[in-house]
Simulated assay, not measured.
Amino acid sequence: MANDQQAQQQRICEALAVKASIDPQQEIDARVDFLCRQMIETGQHGLVLGISGGVDSTVAGRLAQLAVEKARDQGVEARFYAMRLPYGEQKDEDDAQKALTFIAPDEVLTTDVKPASDALLASLEQGGLAFRDAGHRDFVLGNIKARERMVTQYAVAGAMGGMVVGTDQAAEALMGFFTKYGDGACDLAPLTGLTKQQVRDIGTALEAPTHLVKKLPTADLESLKPLLADEIALGVTYDEIDAFLIGHPVSEQAFTTIVQTYERTEHKRQLPKAP
């Protein structure tokens, strides 16, 4: 790898606060402490997180539950609200239920985002919005679903005096693989700086179900492409993304795809621009 590519890779890794290796238990302790301190310092004594059945929300959910339990040990009346936010019937609902069983949250709230999402899209079309084709329409609907889920979580956080927990980790941050103001919107991001494998390692240390830890990642936002694998959508594998993040060499094709995607999605990682 050329020196300029190595320097560029290093700058990106540092910007995303990635460590080449971690001690899973130390990371668990530090991230639980972070969530606990945020509740105590802000006076917002609830944590809210949508649980999909994937490894990221499973790990973040368990960290959140451990954090509210730690806060309660310190005399703070804290609670974790785990949310199920399906669009109609979720094809891997069994995995979501297994995740909830593992997390053991204080409360589970369920809201179907399909009625609100479909109604908004219908209203847009009635107002004159047109799409290039069915795929374009489905893509826009997918982002609407993600934003409706975040609207729902913030409604619960507002009602219960809490903060919304996000699941963004370094691999998704690198690729901008999240919906702006959707799953990318949150108050607390306890998985920041972790590669996908490091999230899995923490899941294993937490004794999460192996099936969920190793599950093929999918955003599952597009109705015409149910359970589309992230790696197909991204054009690179998580192994390649993780290798890039910890400073290892990757193929020229992977390097180009990753860097171009990182640069194209820079706006997602920034606050709104102002004059």
Rank of each mutant, 00 (worst) to 15 (best):
V59R: 03
G46T: 01
G50K: 06
D92H: 03
L85I: 13
D94Q: 12
L124I: 08
A96T: 03
L63T: 13
I22S: 12
V32M: 01
L100P: 15
G50T: 05
Q38R: 14
V68A: 02
K98N: 12
T101V: 15
G53R: 08
E107D: 06
V108F: 01
V76L: 08
E107N: 03
Q74A: 11
A71Y: 12
A64N: 13
V113I: 15
Q38K: 13
M39S: 01
F34M: 06
Q44S: 02
Q38M: 07
V59I: 10
P24T: 11
K70E: 14
M39R: 07
M39A: 03
M83K: 13
P115C: 04
C36M: 07
R37P: 00
F34A: 00
M39C: 03
T58D: 11
E125C: 10
E41L: 09
D56Y: 01
A30N: 06
Q74V: 01
L121N: 05
Q26E: 06
E41H: 09
T58N: 10
A99G: 14
S123V: 05
V48T: 09
L49Q: 07
P86Y: 09
R79W: 10
L124A: 11
D118H: 07
A60I: 02
G88A: 15
A99Y: 09
T101I: 14
S21L: 03
K114T: 00
G61C: 04
S117L: 09
Q65E: 15
H45N: 15
I51Y: 10
G61T: 02
A30L: 10
L124N: 08
A104Q: 12
G88D: 15
E69D: 15
I51A: 09
Q97S: 11
R62K: 15
G61Q: 00
P86A: 11
L49S: 03
A119V: 06
Y81Q: 07
G46H: 03
E69I: 08
V113M: 02
L63M: 15
V32K: 00
P86H: 10
I51C: 11
L66D: 14
P115D: 01
G53C: 06
T101P: 02
T110P: 01
A116L: 15
L85T: 13
D112S: 08
T111D: 00
A122T: 12
G54E: 06
Q97V: 14
Q44P: 00
G61A: 04
S21Y: 00
F80D: 06
L120W: 10
Q25R: 14
D118W: 02
E77M: 15
Q44W: 06
I51E: 09
A119C: 11
